[in-house]
Amino acid sequence: MNTRSLKPWLYLLPAILFLTAFMVYPLFDVFVYSVEEGYNFASQTYSGTGIYNYSYVLHDQYFLQAVKNTFILVIITVPLSTGIALLISLGLNSLPKLKDLYQTIFFLPYVTNTLAVGLVFMILFKKTPYSEGFVNLLIHFFGGESVDFIEGPYWAKMFVMCFYTVWIVLPFKILILTSALASVDQDLYKAAKVDGTSRLRIFYKITLPMISPMIFYLIITGFIGAFKAYSDVVAIFGVNLNAAGMNTIVGYVYDMLYGDSGGYPSFASAAALILFAIVLTITCINLLVSRKKVYYD
């Protein structure tokens, strides 16, 4: 009997061990760091405990800029990417031919290195004294004014950032949604067809409720993912994000820890915990909403 009750824990042991060491323990540790004031990394000493680190971070204009950038990014890209992914998956699902080809093409961005493609995006959007950049040529072609998207006005930079984020997160969402659409019971559609239901009505009354769990899964993970944006930003705007005014919260944490202005684990921890609080709140709200709106059978 004893060996029997021990066995499951044996199976779980490696996972628990790694998770405790690299997820749970750090969580406590980050909290401890974040309340230690005047922590010195070299001598491992600190002068006292309190909430000074939080107030410093919250008053740091770079952090506020990062929060603003992150929120704009999240609010624009999450609904947009989920919506486009839904449209594309619906389109894909209705295709009689070439479905596999399109599916493969749409999946491509997932397989590539974010940094490499980010650099390509930067070159495409960049305007230097030597070259107009491809996107500006397109704008000229349609009769617009050229804009420097990388070092120019704020909205232009934000546009590149959002466009790139949508471009990079779509494949995963399309993958999940197409498989969700494929698993909807075809009898429901046949019944609706017999009744002469309109396309829009079929979508609202059958398709949407049936795939709503997956949509909410995508929205929740989308929020979490967008809040964690960092390497994409680096790829487009370079390492010095503060100067570009395009830093994200994670970028701020990273800079505080390791960048040129780095060496402040306390501030980094405080910022990271603030981010965690934001993500947790939004995830909880999402879960509450989903409980009301999502259809489970």
Binding site: P26, V30, A272, V279
Partner: peptide, 20 residues
């Protein structure tokens, strides 16, 4: 508990892991 861990952003724990 495992599921709750899914919500923790990687960047949050990266600091301590670095120190560890």
């Amino acid at each position: 508990l495992f599921l709750a861990l899914m919500m923790i952003p990687n960047e949050l724990v990266i600091i301590t892991n670095f120190v560890t």
